[in-house]
């Protein structure tokens, strides 16, 4: 991991001139994104390239628009009529804000981990199977195989293999969050959106989730909102600092955390530690 990161971050003279952009392709390309609510300009002209198969961490004080930005990416903002979203968000070659593509298909390319896990009101097994069935997978063996594989991946298999058919609500919050991650990974998304995924969890479950993120991060584009600076330092390849609906600083974690350019970020980091 370290090696790969170093490769990307150290600009080699050859690449810097000719292939700088191509070496870190964007998974998500946001241009002139504005989100308005009545009497409130929530996101102000956001322009952001989110690199592919890297962890991009969104930081910023409460209410600065991190969740709103995340929700714009999978168009959960559609649920709120009062939100007016304009601009372009390019994902997988498609401007998702103005696409003809079915929004359900679009969302299948992304997994969402929310602050509080919401397992489905069904068994552990069916929780993971649900997404696979949505994708049109009907083969029972394949589904069973996938369930085991993904539950193993999140370290839940040994804990639940004897009670796969019991309701998911019997699991602890930490287990529920891992189940939600497993069900998200099972459908092989391109992107994982995570909104403070560890903030409701105990330290043990938090570090499990964090460890998982480190393990999978070379295969997925992860956009992570967190208030935990240390977590950001441990996970981020790219840090975006937001303040009152604007991106005021972004860059590699080493730069950002060691030499914050703005007073606001310095202040935020002071308070965070």
């Amino acid at each position: 991991m370290e090696l790969v990161q170093a490769k990307v971050m150290t600009p080699s003279p050859l690449k810097a001139t000719r292939h700088e952009k191509a070496s870190v392709p964007s998974a998500i390309s946001i241009k002139n994104l504005d989100v308005h609510a009545p009497g409130h300009h929530i996101l102000k002209n956001i322009n952001l390239e989110i690199p592919k198969n890297k962890v991009t961490v969104l930081l910023g004080p409460s209410g600065c628009g991190k969740t709103t930005l995340l929700k714009s990416l999978n168009r959960l903002t559609d649920l709120y009529k009062e939100l007016n979203v304009t601009g372009t968000i390019n994902i997988d070659g498609d401007d998702i804000l103005n696409t003809r593509q079915n929004v359900a298909d679009l969302r299948q390319k992304m997994g969402l981990l929310s602050q509080r896990p919401y397992p489905l009101p069904m068994s552990i097994y069916k929780n993971v199977a649900y997404g696979l069935r949505l994708k049109g997978i009907k083969d029972k063996k394949l589904i069973a195989h996938n369930i085991e594989k993904n539950l193993r991946e999140v370290g839940l298999w040994d804990e639940v293999k004897d009670r796969l058919n019991t309701p998911a609500n019997n699991l602890s919050i930490g287990q529920q969050q891992r189940l939600c991650l497993a069900r998200g990974l099972a459908v092989k998304p391109l992107i994982i959106l995570a909104d403070e995924p560890t903030s409701a969890l105990d330290p043990m479950s938090s570090s499990t989730i964090e460890k998982l993120f480190r393990e999978i991060k070379s295969h997925y584009t992860i956009v992570l909102v967190t208030h935990i600076l240390r977590q950001a330092k441990r996970l981020a390849d790219n840090v975006v600092f937001m303040y009152y609906g604007e991106i005021i600083e972004q860059g590699a974690p080493d730069d950002i955390f060691k030499n914050p350019k703005t007073e606001k970020l310095r202040q935020y980091m002071l308070e965070g530690n």
Binding site: L79, A104, S114, Y118, P121, Y130, G131, L134, V187
Partner: peptide, 26 residues
């Protein structure tokens, strides 16, 4: 909670699936 609906929609369920497969159950 709206978060439940959001997470089901985020998985790529249509509204009808969300309604009849999840909300009905819940």
């Amino acid at each position: 909670p709206i978060g439940m609906q959001e997470s089901v929609l985020a998985m790529g369920s249509t509204k009808t699936e969300t309604a009849f497969k999840i909300m009905l159950k819940q």
